[in-house]
Simulated scan of single mutants.
Amino acid sequence: MEFLALVYEYLSNGSLEDWIKGKRKNGDGAGFSILERLNVAIDVACGLDYLHNDFEVPVAHCDLKPSNILSDKNIIAKVGDLGWLSC
């Protein structure tokens, strides 16, 4: 059997779930601003658009939830845990 693995970049700002539940806060002790929330929504929409329309084979994520949305140090959101592997 061939070994397959997904390797992700380290995303230091944790998951969207952490931000929603207050486990993470920015430098002034607050959560996401309205602009950061909008940017996260746009980032997620762009990621899903790529998976559905621009990938070689259209991909359905199957497990999109806040714990599967990760953000980097600049609060750029990335869609993780591609549940399509088990769909």
Rank of each mutant, 00 (worst) to 15 (best):
F3C: 02
I34H: 12
W19N: 00
A60Q: 10
N39S: 15
D72G: 08
L48E: 09
R37W: 10
L38W: 15
L51P: 00
A5V: 12
L6Q: 06
L48C: 13
C46R: 15
E56I: 12
H52R: 13
G80L: 06
D54M: 14
K21D: 01
D28M: 06
G27E: 13
V57L: 12
A30K: 15
Y10T: 02
D49T: 14
E56A: 14
A5F: 13
G83V: 10
L51T: 08
K25F: 01
W84E: 06
V7P: 02
V40H: 07
A30I: 00
A77F: 04
L82V: 09
N68A: 11
N74W: 13
L4Q: 05
R37H: 07
D63M: 06
V7N: 07
A45H: 11
A45N: 11
L11H: 04
D81R: 08
M1D: 03
K21A: 05
S86P: 00
R37F: 06
D28W: 03
L4K: 04
A41H: 12
A45P: 05
K23D: 03
E9I: 03
N13V: 00
A5N: 01
D43F: 08
S33V: 05
N68V: 02
D18R: 06
D43M: 09
D63K: 02
K65V: 06
D72W: 13
F55G: 00
E2L: 08
E17L: 04
H52D: 11
P66H: 10
C62A: 11
L48T: 11
C62K: 11
S67H: 09
L48N: 09
R37D: 00
N39Q: 15
N26I: 00
K78P: 03
G47I: 04
F3W: 04
P58F: 15
F55P: 03
P66T: 07
H52Q: 13
A5T: 07
G27Q: 11
S67L: 09
S67D: 10
P58N: 12
V57T: 15
